[in-house]
């Protein structure tokens, strides 16, 4: 990936984001939603400060509005519509992602 080939401290930042992703996932699985939210916010802040794009998986599994780590079926509703998926967070925010058949 291109972002891994950049400067050394950018690599550290990218790794921190990956680690925080794992931590957020684990915390959310333990039912510790606030701690998961803290990890998501920290990862977003690091990406912002280092001008990195967040990994797609991270973007799709977090809520843009409330920073919750989304677990489909638990705190997120996943519905397919014509040509796109709608993911609704418990906070009410919706995200739409296109798909190809």
């Amino acid at each position: 990936m291109w972002r891994r080939q950049k400067h050394a401290d950018v690599t550290v930042a990218a790794e921190r984001i990956d680690r925080l992703h794992e931590l957020a996932r684990a915390a959310a699985a333990d039912g510790d939603t606030d701690r998961a939210r803290y990890y998501v916010r920290l990862a977003r802040r690091i990406a912002e400060r280092n001008r990195l794009a967040l990994p797609r998986e991270f973007r799709r599994f977090t809520c843009d509005a409330c920073d919750a780590y989304l677990r489909p079926g638990r705190n997120a509703r996943v519905r397919t519509r014509d040509g796109h998926v709608v993911i609704t967070c418990d906070c009410g925010a919706q995200a739409r992602y296109p798909y190809e058949e």
């Binding site: 401290d9 690599t11 550290v12 790794e15 921190r16 925080l20 931590l23 990890y39 920290l42």
Partner: peptide, 16 residues
């Protein structure tokens, strides 16, 4: 540039 003793003060501490 993995998490090494050199990079640790700049790396993620959460979870360690």
């Amino acid at each position: 540039m993995a998490l090494t003793p050199e990079t640790l003060p700049r790396h993620e501490l959460n979870g360690l």
